[in-house]
């Protein structure tokens, strides 16, 4: 196929998911701008600093999980079904381990950066880490179930999973990452 023809094919296949991702991003932008969320950022100094790293970790860990599953599907060593398969289970467990440990690291790092800056004082370390880990854990559940369901369903209908993964991960990661961050701020605020 010529370049223009296959470019059009990639365009048509990718656009709908990118538009869904766009809608998710705009929704996340709104949640970030709500007075309640702004108040949350004010009561937990260090959280805004952690935000890009926190959201990006969702993309990293689950984007890589998706890419791994896609290659497995293409190579025929992963079945497009939500059932116990050694490779699938291992990939998911590894993703959760990485996601949670990175959230702890990001919390500690943000706390440290604000602590060493003159005139700045971060939120207490345990609270900052608790908010991020709680949000990471809730997002993990939604992202894993959502990613696998959508990629497998797409693959069985002949959609190349390579074109689905990034947008699915970014959209679910943005929407649920920000929403669960808000929920976690509320929960930690009540408990502490």
């Amino acid at each position: 196929m010529d370049a223009r023809g296959s470019a059009w094919a990639i365009y048509r296949e990718s656009l709908p998911v990118l538009l869904v991702s766009l809608a998710g991003g705009i929704f996340a932008g709104f949640v970030l701008g709500t007075p309640a969320m702004v108040e949350g950022f004010e009561s937990y100094p260090g959280l805004l600093l952690a935000l890009p790293a926190f959201l990006a970790t969702r993309g990293n860990v689950y984007g890589a999980l998706g890419a791994r599953i896609a290659s497995g599907l293409h190579q025929g060593i992963v079945e497009p079904r939500l059932r116990r398969q050694r490779r699938l289970v291992n990939a998911v467990v590894a993703a959760v381990v990485n996601g949670l440990s990175m959230s702890v690291f990001i919390g500690v790092a943000s706390w440290t950066i604000l602590t060493v800056q003159p005139g700045r004082s971060p939120a207490p370390l345990p609270e900052l880490v608790a908010v991020l880990v709680l949000a990471a854990l809730s997002t993990a559940v939604v992202l894993i179930v959502g990613l696998l369901t959508l990629v497998f369903a797409g693959y069985r209908r002949g959609v190349d999973p390579d074109n689905l993964i990034g947008p699915i991960v970014t959209t679910l990661g943005d929407v649920f990452g920000v929403v669960f961050l808000f929920v976690s701020i509320t929960i930690v605020g009540v408990v502490v």
Binding site: L18, G29, P52, T170
Partner: peptide
């Protein structure tokens, strides 16, 4: 402007991932 922020953070990666994931699969194949 704040509404643009998450899209600006995520969309570049989405677009890059489309080409990266395609190349990655071609590499495996």
């Amino acid at each position: 402007l704040l509404v643009l922020v998450p899209v600006m953070i995520g969309m570049g990666g989405n677009l890059g991932a489309i080409i990266a994931a395609r190349l990655s699969t071609q590499l495996h194949l």
